[in-house]
């Protein structure tokens, strides 16, 4: 098979770095969250690809747990974004200085 483990890992690395770029450039909180989602997805792809090339389904179980964790993260982060919007009427991350000591 031409496209083995390394091809999948490379694709996941490229997607992860696309997500890193998105996190760095966006000022909008939901824009940052969408990019974080892209990164989490790349990590899941890695887990499933490794699971294909190792005995057992441990990687797939791990990927399912990681998916649930990502959804939990999105829920809490969106709640924080809604709260931020209610207090500052804006979701630009530069304005979120309320918790600065």
């Amino acid at each position: 098979m031409i496209f083995g483990l390394q091809a999948y890992l490379s694709l996941a690395a490229i997607l992860f770095c696309t997500g890193v770029y998105g996190v760095l450039v966006h000022r909008n909180a939901v824009g940052v969250l969408v990019s974080v989602e892209l990164m989490a997805n790349a990590v899941n792809l890695n887990l499933v690809a490794f699971s294909r090339h190792a005995e057992g389904v441990g990687g797939q179980v791990f990927a399912l747990i990681a998916m649930a964790l990502t959804v939990v993260e999105v829920v809490v982060a969106l709640a924080i974004v809604v709260l931020l919007y209610r207090t500052t009427k804006d979701i630009a991350l530069d304005g979120a200085r309320e918790m600065k000591g």
Partner: peptide
């Protein structure tokens, strides 16, 4: 940001393609 992300990508891709163990892995 693009510079940083592509540096990170370069590092990861180099690591992936220079690890001999990964190339030898066969699909189960």
């Amino acid at each position: 940001a693009a510079l940083g992300a592509s540096l990170l990508a370069g590092t990861m891709l180099t690591a992936i393609w220079s690890t001999p163990d990964l190339a030898e892995r066969e699909a189960v």
